[in-house]
Amino acid sequence: MGTVPGSLNAAGAIHAEDGHTAGREGRRHSPRVLLVLPTVVWLALFFVAPLVLMAAYSFGTSDLVIYTTRLGFTLRNYGEMGDALYLGAILRSLELSAVATAACMAIALPLAFFTVRQRPSVQRLLLLATIVPFWTSFLIRNYAWVNILQNEGMLQGLLHRLGLVHGSLNIMYSPTAIGIGIVYSYLPLMVLPVYVALERLDPAIIEAASDLGAHGFSLMSRIVIPLATPGLIAGAILVGIPATGEFVIPAILGGGKTLMLGNVIADQFLNVGNLALGAAMAMTLMTFLAVVLVLVALAQRTRTKTQDADRGATG
């Protein structure tokens, strides 16, 4: 939070210099900074302070009998996470999130590409069709999958009728069901950035590639995917990061059998009362995600630099 006040002063100073409108009314010192004050106070109290306190808790000790946490400095909570139950949940979260993100990429790309190729009015309709389900109740949409996936449910009925499967399906309450739920819930967050990346490029490139004989798979792998990469990366962040901490989807579709890190954290809070351990897990999750973000940002910076260098060399 240390940089915020500094930047506010800088902003205030700059405004005073350009104070065209304010200056005219003799309000050169009009406190523009006051505008951002509510946000600064709100975030300091309810965003930064809680996270700092959580960091402190993660080094504290929870007394499970009297339900209190003493602050202090111990690494025991972090050590306890090596326990097979917790380690399993952490690895499962990473795996499910990675697989679901990859699946989202594979599914979103054709839809985004298809959308970009339509007339503007159709594009608008397709985007609407992509966004609307996303803003509709997250909880209810995932619950709908219980109806579809459960034994005796719709999918099993359909597959039985087609004669593809006999007996029970046993998808519900498994990691597969959670994976389906994550892909389903986060898909629009992949489609939109990929769409935006593809929309910015000149349709003539695709025409040219297709004139030169690139079709189907080679068109996708050599032209469309490389051009969609910035969108795919943005989408991977928007999908992969929240999915790693997902808590509602595994609770509904995993049925409490298949745990993800989010459930284990919530469980410390709800049942066990080991807040220090829960805080340590949340800190680990947050730190891990921050590291991933920094790595992605660095990779992107290198990529842009190389591209600039290439452009410099050819031009």
């Binding site: 599914i107 979103a108 054709p110 389900p133 949409r141 619950y143 709908a144 898909l187 079709h215």
Partner: peptide, 23 residues
């Protein structure tokens, strides 16, 4: 338009809307 791309796009949209209709 590649027919497979179009088919996948349509199936994806169906996948997104199906649960809402189920409910």
């Amino acid at each position: 338009e590649h027919p497979i791309v179009s088919l996948m796009a349509v199936l994806t949209l169906a996948f997104m809307w199906l649960p809402l209709f189920v409910v």
